[in-house]
Amino acid sequence: MTTKFTTRSFVALVLLALLGVAFWTLAAGYTPDAELNRTAAYYAENTARETGAQNIVTAIIVTYRGLDTLGEVTVLFLTAAIVALVLGQSKAPRGGSGSGFLPSGELLQTGTKMLLPIIMLFGAYVFVNGHLTPGGGFQGGAILASGILLLLLAEPKRRFGHALISRVESVSGLVYVLIGIAGIVLAGGFLDNRILPLGTFGALLSAGAIPLIYTLIGLKVGAEFSSILESLEETEDA
């Protein structure tokens, strides 16, 4: 099926060869910079003084480019809503051939009960430490969603709280925007992290509002991913 050589794949190959030539000229003439460009140098020099974060990537995502992150989280929310809408309109036919879930084994259920709290704790660790070590809200949120995924695999029959997920999602989004507005009132601008004291550099409770904002992002992203996974998994009796 895939090996048949048609005019269609020939045209595709010609187009891709043209694109490949463009890529080749890009890669052949590339030499890595020896110095940081001005934006990057500004971030490298001023992150510690202005935001108090050790991880420069975190400082860029949460503070310097915080508005973009708010937009990104909103895009994810829209995605989750559209997936739920599209799949909600096309319910699977009842009693089709081979419908229904296989029961998951005893091992998976017991293992889930043991592992789920640890996975959730690890996700929380990753997003609370986002300003000190690699990691942060998006990674931690994905880890939380993996925990929910394990729960879905172990007990496919149980419909756990969709209301809880959407409540976590909307409350954390609301508080995120409120913290941003508090930045306008109390500090230099929207999503400014200096509404809380910067603390000692390198401590867990430092960098102003960055741990708080990243925790909220983590909860929101985790809830959104869980909702996407749940609406794709949900088939019968939904």
Binding site: T39, A40, Y43, V57, D68
Partner: peptide
């Protein structure tokens, strides 16, 4: 350069 990393993360 931290900027491409922040970009790719999103």
């Amino acid at each position: 350069d931290p900027v491409p990393q922040a970009l790719v993360l999103t």
